[in-house]
Design a binder for these strands. Sequence first.
DNA 1: ACAACGTTTGGACAACTGTCAAGACAGGTC
DNA 2: GACCTGTCTTGACAGTTGTCCAAACGTTGT
Lengths: 205, 205
Amino acid sequence: MPALSAPVASKHDTRRDQLAESALTTLGQLGYAKTSLREIARHSPFTHGVVHYYFSDKEELITYCVRYYKRTCVTRYDEIVATSTSAAELQSRFAAKLAGTIRDEGPMHQLWYDLRNQSMFEPGLREVVLEIDGQLEAMIWRVLTRYAELAGRELALDSSTGYGMLDGLFAQTLLAWATGPAAARDDVLAVLTARVDALMPSLLR
Amino acid sequence: MPALSAPVASKHDTRRDQLAESALTTLGQLGYAKTSLREIARHSPFTHGVVHYYFSDKEELITYCVRYYKRTCVTRYDEIVATSTSAAELQSRFAAKLAGTIRDEGPMHQLWYDLRNQSMFEPGLREVVLEIDGQLEAMIWRVLTRYAELAGRELALDSSTGYGMLDGLFAQTLLAWATGPAAARDDVLAVLTARVDALMPSLLR
DNA sequence: ACAACGTTTGGACAACTGTCAAGACAGGTC
DNA sequence: GACCTGTCTTGACAGTTGTCCAAACGTTGT
């Protein structure tokens, strides 16, 4: 043991998080298919042996990364939900934040869709992907229910449908943002914001 | 040259199509990340050397495959558009066909989303992916405009938004279909049909 | 029969992959 | 000082990958 018991997290866990962070940036840049354990180590302060010292398996590293990433992402809109005082405010702030998170964390979202797709081919990823997908749906549902509450009306759709629709618009924008010319990036984000802004009222009845 | 000029397509092109078909089934089963040229050859009547005889590159094979696949997929709903005589008929047939194509061609759709995601990391795929994505959007737009025409009303959204929303619902269902238990497959498809059926009227104003 | 050519095979190559193990390097305890 | 123990480096392994190439094959024309 490194000491008796570390203040908050053992050094072991700290290093695992550190490696997970290096792995996430690598995966976000190269994608799942082209990311190797050696490449991850190259993007970290360590050599490739360390990866196997802290993770038994490539699969264990990946799933650990997904769960690590989740901690910071599935509550992304909760502050907006908590502090908005009108339906109009919630709507516009949510629409803006959707675009903002693409601008600020684009590669991480690219990675999410990549891993989500991989789960269709790799059974080992399914558990963690479905777990996070459910949390993302719940995150959107919190936005929508609060939105209806503030508007004093009822929602015209269920949780799953709302998540599927908004996620489709989000993924579409992310694709255009990631593959389009750099000069058009601001435009596609503005389109997403306007689109969600226009769509949300029609989700109420 | 094998002959002077073959009846319809040269043997060279025939073999390219044949290899593309083997490649597509392999890619649909294993996904982009785990598909190698040797694996493709193993799923074909030939050995791995032939692949490089007909395709200079792995990238050329993949892009050829995507275009080959496109020929059969971007007109999938045109027959429904052409023969439906009422908005209600078009709506229910379209909703049913969406689910039906997942049932019948699931792996091919998984592959499409896989390659679409890869294009965010691999610039070489962007051109062909964006080309087909545009054709898919146009395909959906033909459905929606005809739907509005039959209903005698106006559409409440533009082409891109309609495609993004419906594609989101489609991808969501595909994920559940591909990763969920076999016993639930019919259910998720029925949910998609019901969902699209309920959604479409709200796209009109 | 021969030659020519398009096609196919199978093996080779270097580079890379995940995995593992032996040793070096700490820091602390006796 | 010696000793231990957790950490890290380095090199090795077997397997796979994309790519290339020399040889064999089969058909065609002469």
